[in-house]
Lab assay of single mutants.
Amino acid sequence: QTIHNGDQTYHYDNPEEAIKVAQKLAKIYNLTVTVKGNTVQVH
């Protein structure tokens, strides 16, 4: 599972963990989380 947060990319073995982290980032920075296959984008 990969999270793209602007210019930063994070890799997680656990998809659920990746989505949790993405949602935390989204709340902190007031962003949107988009899940596309194995990629979670925060923008």
Rank of each mutant, 00 (worst) to 15 (best):
Q1A: 11
Q1K: 08
Q1G: 12
Q1F: 08
Q1N: 10
T2W: 13
T2A: 12
T2K: 07
T2G: 11
T2M: 12
T2L: 13
T2N: 11
T2S: 10
T2Y: 12
I3G: 10
I3T: 11
I3W: 13
I3E: 09
I3N: 11
I3P: 10
H4L: 10
H4F: 13
H4I: 11
H4D: 09
H4N: 10
N5V: 12
N5P: 11
N5T: 12
G6K: 11
G6Q: 10
G6T: 10
G6V: 12
G6C: 14
D7K: 12
D7I: 15
D7M: 14
D7L: 14
D7V: 15
Q8L: 13
Q8I: 14
Q8W: 15
Q8S: 09
T9R: 05
T9V: 14
T9W: 14
T9Q: 07
T9K: 05
T9E: 09
Y10I: 04
Y10S: 01
Y10C: 10
Y10W: 09
H11M: 07
Y12L: 07
Y12S: 02
Y12R: 01
Y12P: 01
Y12G: 01
D13L: 08
D13A: 14
D13E: 08
D13K: 13
D13S: 13
D13F: 05
D13R: 13
N14M: 03
N14W: 04
N14E: 03
N14G: 04
N14F: 04
P15R: 07
P15M: 09
P15S: 06
P15F: 08
P15W: 09
E16H: 07
E16N: 06
E16W: 10
E16Y: 07
E16F: 07
E16C: 13
E17M: 12
A18V: 01
A18S: 01
A18G: 01
A18Y: 02
A18P: 01
I19Q: 13
I19D: 05
I19H: 11
I19W: 14
K20D: 06
K20V: 05
V21F: 12
V21L: 06
V21P: 00
V21N: 08
V21G: 08
A22P: 00
A22Q: 02
A22R: 00
A22H: 01
A22F: 04
A22K: 01
Q23Y: 07
Q23T: 10
Q23H: 10
Q23L: 13
K24W: 15
K24C: 15
K24M: 15
K24L: 15
K24A: 14
L25Y: 03
L25P: 03
A26P: 02
A26N: 11
A26W: 06
A26F: 06
K27Q: 15
K27A: 15
I28L: 14
I28S: 04
I28H: 11
I28R: 08
I28Q: 11
Y29W: 11
Y29D: 10
Y29C: 14
Y29E: 13
Y29S: 07
N30L: 05
N30Q: 07
N30Y: 12
N30W: 13
N30F: 10
N30D: 06
L31Q: 03
L31M: 07
L31H: 09
L31S: 03
L31R: 01
L31E: 02
T32L: 10
T32W: 07
T32A: 07
T32H: 10
T32C: 11
T32G: 04
V33H: 00
V33D: 00
V33Q: 00
T34W: 04
T34G: 01
T34C: 08
V35Y: 02
V35S: 02
V35E: 01
V35C: 00
V35I: 06
V35R: 01
K36M: 12
K36G: 03
K36E: 10
K36Y: 11
K36F: 11
K36N: 12
K36D: 10
K36L: 12
K36P: 01
K36T: 10
G37A: 04
G37Q: 03
G37R: 01
G37L: 04
G37E: 05
G37M: 02
G37W: 03
G37T: 01
G37F: 04
G37C: 10
N38G: 05
N38L: 04
N38H: 05
N38W: 02
N38A: 06
T39N: 05
T39I: 11
T39M: 09
T39S: 07
V40S: 01
V40E: 00
V40P: 01
V40C: 08
V40F: 01
V40I: 10
Q41V: 15
V42M: 02
H43C: 10
H43Y: 06
H43K: 07
H43Q: 05
